[in-house]
Design a protein around this nucleic acid. Sequence first.
DNA 1: ATGACGAATTTGTATTTACATTTGACTGGT
DNA 2: ACCAGTCAAATGTAAATACAAATTCGTCAT
Lengths: 360, 360
Amino acid sequence: MDNYKYLAIVDWVKQYIASEKLGPNDRFLTEKQLCTIHGCSRQTVRQALMMLESENVICRVRGSGTFVSGRPAPQPGTQAKKSIGVISTYFSDYIFPHIVTGIESVLNDAGYAMQLAITHNQVLEETQALENMLSQGVQGLIVEPSKSALPNPNAGLYAELRRSDIPVVFFNAKYPWADFPCAAMDDETAGRIVTDYLISCGHRSIAGIFALDDIQGHKRYSGYMKSCLENNIAGWENNVFWFATSDRSSMFRFAKGKLLDLIDSVSAVVCYNDRLAISLLQMCKEKGIRVPQDLSVVGIDDSRYASICDVPLTTVHHPHSKLGEAAAELLLGTIDRRIMLPEDRIFVPELVIRDSVAKV
Amino acid sequence: MDNYKYLAIVDWVKQYIASEKLGPNDRFLTEKQLCTIHGCSRQTVRQALMMLESENVICRVRGSGTFVSGRPAPQPGTQAKKSIGVISTYFSDYIFPHIVTGIESVLNDAGYAMQLAITHNQVLEETQALENMLSQGVQGLIVEPSKSALPNPNAGLYAELRRSDIPVVFFNAKYPWADFPCAAMDDETAGRIVTDYLISCGHRSIAGIFALDDIQGHKRYSGYMKSCLENNIAGWENNVFWFATSDRSSMFRFAKGKLLDLIDSVSAVVCYNDRLAISLLQMCKEKGIRVPQDLSVVGIDDSRYASICDVPLTTVHHPHSKLGEAAAELLLGTIDRRIMLPEDRIFVPELVIRDSVAKV
DNA sequence: ATGACGAATTTGTATTTACATTTGACTGGT
DNA sequence: ACCAGTCAAATGTAAATACAAATTCGTCAT
């Protein structure tokens, strides 16, 4: 039975404030008054007040007095609502909003607040975000890696997280050097099934455009490669065009010539994702290349633009919000179990056939 | 010059932990040792240690000793990174991601973390989010009101925020009973210019579909109304179709008959926003109504779908991310000045002409 | 009225002393 | 090898005292 005087005073004060209906900024009893009321020394009163101040119940001003501060701690269960940090590369567009929505819904149901930061796929912004989150005292982190296929200065930070038992879950991709659980779709299979589909439609010369700095890009490329190998597609290795995600907007300006040459020589293109595919569609429109008559195009991710755009895009469904929910569930699971098992949640990709592929 | 012993000891300990490279869970000096080192009483040492413990630098165990805990507080500037709460109705889609991105960029530059909650336009979820944010100790709030045109149970909470000087900024709309600054576009003018444009194209019977539970809906309706009045459009009052935002997805199921009758009787429709307009376009497609030949449609907000969809939509440009930035700047301004002047940031809407309106 | 000054009040810092409670290691017996 | 008891060490609680620093407010002179 913890029966200490200063704790008794803490409780008494809370009761007192509640019963007297003291609002914010009302003057409270002085230390001396509390001493005589409780018949104890000033130090004991001070210890109680110190505790109350750190709990944000009161506010003390030297020379002036003690005041009631803010909301008087609604429930006695005074633990602050816990929060989870979410770090994403982007989220203004594409599939990201859906993923984050999925995360939010699960976190919210579990009573966690969500703190969001965006890295714009820049590792330094990731560093910044991680530092922020940690100094905010988050209970866990859900991170989409930035430039997951390149060396990364944050390895030390993640190691520290591991040591201090702050749970981390990745989504979309995972850093190979950080063994945390991950929610993602099976990107290799995604790359494979779009290529398989093109081949099943009779295409034999198929270009691929992939992100270079990103594990997802590598995996999708790998699926494309395996499909080409298994189906004895010749020359595929020379038909691959690599880009860095930072180039995404500018690649169609700077590398247009090279890209057009490549496109001229094939009958179909596997695009790293829908966003890229849609840019390609626009370029084709400008150049008078008809899709799918002159060129077949497939994307991956099934973003909403894929179904709305001019030539509805054949693509691979991305689990969007389900993936976000899975990531959040993984994190909550590790928080509950208090251990970090690196069990991933991998989603099986499904082909979505629309109008951007011709049979030959 | 604050030159207190216990603060000196706090600094000394931080230095010591850093210089000796003590990791988490390493045993630290005992209180007695610190007493002899600094030549002071044990209480003074304890005061310092108490501070360090509350800062999460050390961890004390009765009967055992003092231990180094976690990360040793990187910079001496030890105030936890401050965070701002952002409460939005939705954000997975439409213009919301852009708005939130704008907010994030400004907050991030100013060194604030962003905490995000979503209400799904439900006042109770707004209550929940507000409570969460407050218990997290945010420095300020950026809120998009939920059902801003209906009575709201959170009035008391906002009054409390006002009293306790926690700055609040609204965006998109403001509650009429809560006098906080607001960043929004001029919705009345937006409603007016689309109607004006339809009239300038020769339309004389123009329907309007507006959100009922939302100040933005009221204002856009008001613009539509004024334009009709000024241009002597007859019968406009009977051509208005109201809906609640919660009906949005289902209205085309339940009220289809009534809506079709309405559409049959007019040559043009003003839609509350692009999202609605696009749903309408799809319905028209299904029913074989050609846009713009049989029916002209205008939206408001210039979401990305407006430019991509089948019949590119004539609409009004929404400042998206600029509006988000403005909201964040308003908030940071009031934080800096420490007073809340209700100065709004209103954006002038601009018509974006695409292909969904026919001249008659 | 206004301003300067100072006393009283109130919280902050510092020391000293005493005892309580918990932990961990040591010791001795089985 | 194991168990139980003991004891020292470490932190926790409590009190009395003294002085420091900031604020408030009344008084007095201008």
